[in-house]
Every structure is written in structure tokens, then in C-alpha cells.
Design a protein around this nucleic acid. Structure first.
Lengths: 190, 190
DNA sequence: AAAACAGCTTGATAAAAATCAAGAAATTGC
DNA sequence: GCAATTTCTTGATTTTTATCAAGCTGTTTT
């Protein structure tokens, strides 16, 4: 089992010929730092597996950019509104660093559903996990102050703090860079 | 097509004998004001369609209760972590008013998946819609101040403001009842 | 009808976080 | 290696929101 097959097997809980079959649709893709996977107004007709690098999801809101999430290697990257519903995106998806991906087009993605009977169920589970994660995030935003959210993210995604510019992490946690900087100073020991 | 069949048809985009088939698994259920559909630590092995009444999802956090969402009639109600993954809930689901539901057990729910081939795909679409809604909520929490969030909810779910105690709406929007009260006074005209 | 209660509002104050402005540190480009 | 640029930090101040405390309003209970 190669790298991609291994990831697919882990994420979707399938094995044997199914893995090989699914994996065969994914094509290697490289992104340079700053390059866009998706821009607002376009339809994100793809699903990518992130092999290396950092990818930022953000939205332009009035004057400021709101970073919604930063994905690191080992994750799948997609705009669900485009992939599932063919809706144009409000979100930008941009490479923060050079990235290596395995990407499947929406067309091939749909084909899998016709070939592997339980694909839709696996997708369902996959999306349901994402939903539960979003639910947790909402809870953190509703119930925690800035410092608690900082600790929450530090626990859930410690690796982000090693590589991602702090301004983006601040935005993602719903605070200003200055506030994050002060929280970090206060927590130098931990 | 009766009331329930009509709802199912709308939500899942199916028709004919499939609707009748799916609908036949749902059983009427009544809840009295204050009664619980689910308590923390229990596994939510059900999916309910809400025919009337108001249902509150909330979590006990340290000292305070955090209202995560309030569902009104015409929606489906479930704890995905229980329904899909058999995980025990951290959330309480409680009737804010007397409610009439149509409820299906997890067992019957699983049966549908075996009988109607495209059921998993419909579920997928259903959950994906929920995911996108959560994404919007996160965006509102990240990018808006209290007053903007108030207007956002007022636009997205005006009916909630007619029937739901304001303290719960305040919590759901991530602000205190006092703050919501002041925002409302400021916006009496609109 | 009075008492008790729940929900909402109001005002005063405190705490949290944003903003503004400047400078330090790190990174990038040449 | 140095200049230019970006990112991060720090301090002073303002704004936003929470907290605390009291009172108001309407409803339910007895």
C-alpha cells in the first residue's frame, strides 16, 4: 500500500481493491506558496488530499480577512458547497507554503460513487465527522474567552503553532493579533 | 401525501413509494414542556422530525449553560454523535414547549439504508447542508460583534425571536442577556 | 388579591478585547 | 550581508461586553 492508499484507507475505513480503486483517481498536484486552489465566485469542483504544506481558508469580510481554518498535511481539502452542491464559493483557499496534493476532480469523485457501493456511506461518515468538529468549534467560540480559545487550539492542533503565522491563527480564533501576542506572553511557561 | 411524507419528501428530495417507505418507520411522539429528548452521557439513538414546539440544545459548561441551538417546527432533530457514531452525548436536548414529533429509532434508521439504495447519499446531502450552516455560524462568530450577530440571527431565523426566551437566544449568539437587551432597545425601530 | 416567581430591563462599574501607534524581530530579496 | 518588507510585540487608550445589583413586568400559585 502506497502513501496515498494508506491515507485513504485510514480516512474512509476501506481496504483491499477498494482502496486501490479509489486511489487511482487521485492525481498528484503541486502548489507554490501563495497560489490559490479556489477563489471566491468559482465552484470548487475537487477534493484534495494534502500531502505536505499548509493551506488557508479565508473570507473577505468588509475591510478585513477572516481566516476560517488552516489545514496541515494529512488532511483532505475541499469546498463542500462546490463539491457537493455545485455552488460558487465565498471562501478563498490558498497555499501558505509550497504544497503537494493528491487531487480528484468532481467528475471522478462522482464516478467512485457509482463504482463502490458503500462510497456514499463513507462520505456521509466523513462529512459527519467534520460536522461534529464544527460543532465543537462553535462551542468553543460561544463559551470561552480569548485565552481559553488559545489553549483549546493549542491542545487540538499544536502543530499549527509551529508553522502558521500568528496573525492567521489569531483571526481563526476570533481575536486580534495583538490579543494573541499578549496571551502568548502571559503563557510563556506553558 | 400526508404531513410527514410531505416533510420527508422536501428534506430528502425523494418521492413515490420511497417516501411512503421511509415515512412508515417514523412514529408519533409527544413531549411536555421541560421534558428531555436526550441527556448528557446518554447515546442519542434517534432521529426526530419536529412537527410543533421548540427544542433547545445546550451544554453545561463550568458554571453556565451554553445554548447551542434552538430548533423550531419543520426541522429534524438528532444528536449526530449518537445517531451516526454511537457516541454518548455532551449535549442536552430539551423541549422548551410542548412538542409533537415523528421519531425513528437508530435501528429502523439503519434499516432504511439497507432498503433504499440511495438513502446514504441523501443522508450525506442532508449532513452536508448542516455542515455548511455550521460554517456560516462560525463565520458570524469570528467576524461580527454582538450587534451584528443579532441582526444576522434576526435575518436567518426571525421566528425564533417571537417565541424563544431571550436569555437562550443571547447564549446562542454568544452574548449575555443584558447585552441582548441593550441591543434590542437600540434597535426598537428595526 | 397577595405572594412568589420567572424573565427582562436598566444603571453603574469592571473586565476583556480592539484599536492606534510605534518599535523590535524575523524573513525575504537582492 | 544589507536593505526592504513582513510579522510580531508592546504600550496607551478606547470601545465593547460582562458582571453585579436592583427594579420592573407579567404570569402563576395559593
Amino acid at each position: 500500500m502506497n502513501e496515498l492508499e494508506n491515507y485513504i484507507s485510514t480516512f474512509f475505513g476501506i481496504s483491499g481493491s477498494d482502496v486501490k480503486n479509489v486511489a487511482s483517481y487521485f492525481k498528484p498536484q503541486s502548489l507554490q506558496k501563495g497560489e490559490y486552489l479556489l477563489k471566491p465566485g468559482k465552484i470548487g469542483r475537487f477534493l484534495s488530499f494534502q500531502r505536505s504544506g499548509l493551506i488557508r481558508f479565508y473570507t473577505n469580510s468588509q475591510d478585513a480577512e477572516v481566516t476560517q481554518w488552516i489545514s496541515d498535511s494529512g488532511n483532505f481539502v475541499a469546498d463542500l458547497s462546490g463539491l457537493i452542491f455545485d455552488l460558487s464559493s465565498r471562501t478563498s483557499i490558498q497555499a501558505l507554503t509550497d504544497c503537494e496534493l493528491f487531487t480528484i476532480s468532481k467528475e471522478d469523485y462522482s464516478t467512485i460513487g457509482q463504482i463502490i457501493p458503500k462510497w456514499h456511506e463513507l462520505e456521509k461518515l466523513f462529512i459527519a465527522r467534520a460536522f461534529l468538529f464544527m460543532e465543537e468549534r462553535i462551542f468553543s467560540l460561544l463559551s470561552m474567552n480569548a485565552e481559553e480559545r488559545y489553549h483549546w487550539l493549542l491542545n487540538h492542533n499544536p502543530s499549527l503553532f509551529q508553522y502558521v503565522p500568528l496573525q492567521y491563527l489569531a483571526s481563526m480564533m476570533g481575536m486580534t493579533p495583538e490579543t494573541l501576542s499578549r496571551i502568548r506572553r502571559k503563557n510563556l511557561n506553558s
